[in-house]
Each structure stands twice: as C-alpha cells, then as structure tokens.
Amino acid sequence: MQLSLPFTRSQQLGFDEFVEAPGTDAVRFLADPGEAHALVVGAPGTGKTHLLTAACQQAYQQEQQAAYIPLADTDTLTPAILQGLASFDLVCVDDLDRVAGQPEWETALFNCYNECDAGAARLVVAGTGAAQEIGFQLPDLVSRLRAALVLRTSPLDDEEAVVALRRRAAFASFELPDAVARFLLRRIPRDMPTLVRALDALAEHTFAEQRKVTVPSARAWLEQQQID
C-alpha cells in the first residue's frame, strides 16, 4: 500500500474496532471495494477519520494501493497533493471543511474526483456536511459530491461508547474492565476524541506501572491529570 502521508498508531484501527450507532451502515458500504465513491458525513468526533483509515487498512490487507490525505494538515500541504492519484485503488480525503471556499483547493478536489472517476480509484471523502452545507463554491465540485454515496456517522450513546473504548483498548492489548470504562465516561467529557486521549494516556500509565487498571487506580491517575 502506498500512502500519501504516514499513518500513526491510532490510524491503524480497523473496521472491527469501529462501533456504529443504530441506523448507520457506513462500515458495510466502505468495506465493500466494489461500492461507488462516497461522502462520509458527521459531526466532529463521530468516527469519520477512523472509517477512512480503516478503509486504507483493509486495502493494505488486500494488497491494494491506498492514499489517505488529511486536509486538516493544509498548513503543510499544497493542492498538488491531490494530483496523480488515479492509479490507486482507494483515495481517502479527510477534513473537507478545511478547504471549502478556497478556489485552488476546490479545483484540485474537482480534478481529483474526475481523475479517480476516469481511472480505477474509488474516492472516499469526509466532512461535517454535504458539499453545499460546508461552503464549497465551485458548482461542478458540488455536483460531483452530490453524486457520491452519502454515509452518515452519529454520536454514540453511553453503552456504545463503553464498547468502543473496550475495543480500542483491546487493539492496544490493554485490558480495560467494564467498570473502568464506565468510570471514564462519568468523569471525562463525553466526546469520543477526549475519551480516546484519556484512554491512551491511562493505558500508557498502566503499562509503565506494570499492573492491571482498576477503578481506584484510574481515579488516582485521573486526579493527577488534566485532560484537554
């Protein structure tokens, strides 16, 4: 697999670690390489990046070429990053909102869509809303994105969040008891990115201490921390 930008450990989570809210079906569609171009839509922290990078992971496992491009990094990227991707099997472009209203980026996205459409690449993009909702101005780009399959992500309820935390912990070989997961939900802001950062930090601390995590040990650790 060729990646336009390197993965971090958190970006290696697969579809098995993703927990979907009822009524959404993004995993089934994204896991099927025969599906059409897709636009993943959802509020911040609902798993869009996880889905895109999981799709790249699956492509890697199937010995396909995939590119993951996070437009949140536009301070260090130029629109040229979207060129020459038609030979890939999968192209994932994250954080569309960051470039809406910027003519050079919108033109580059439009050209990327056309190149993928003409070649063999499946294009999957993600943002917080439909093209017109997040402020794209180029009519042809809006038209292309409207033609894509729309997949929605939703916030998790408490039970789903517990499952998500425990799956992520298992991925990192960290044994997270149900009671500790529920304790974290009660004590930490309920958005998943904050919970995940706390979980990763707790796991690192627990591994360093070389002991199992319990509610008392998690409470003692949390009292010494300031979770951003």
Rank of each mutant, 00 (worst) to 15 (best):
P6Q: 15
T8G: 05
Q11D: 14
D16C: 15
E17R: 06
V27L: 11
P33I: 06
E35I: 03
V41N: 01
G42P: 01
K48N: 06
T49V: 06
T49S: 15
A55V: 07
C56T: 09
Q58N: 04
Q62H: 03
E63F: 01
Q64V: 05
Q65A: 03
I69E: 08
L71P: 02
A72D: 05
I81G: 01
G84T: 02
G84R: 10
A86N: 08
L90M: 11
D97Y: 01
Q102S: 01
P103V: 07
E106K: 06
T107E: 10
T107Q: 09
T107R: 14
N111C: 13
N114L: 06
D117G: 11
G119K: 10
A120F: 00
A126E: 11
A130N: 03
F136M: 12
V142E: 10
V142T: 15
R144Q: 11
R144D: 04
V150E: 10
V150G: 00
L151G: 01
T153R: 07
T153L: 08
P155M: 08
D158W: 01
E159Y: 01
A161E: 03
V163L: 15
A164I: 08
R167I: 06
R167G: 06
S173M: 05
F174K: 12
L176I: 00
D178L: 10
L185D: 04
P189F: 15
P189R: 13
P193S: 05
L195G: 02
A198M: 12
D200S: 08
D200T: 14
E209S: 07
R211A: 10
T214R: 11
T214S: 15
P216N: 03
P216I: 04
A218Q: 09
E223H: 12
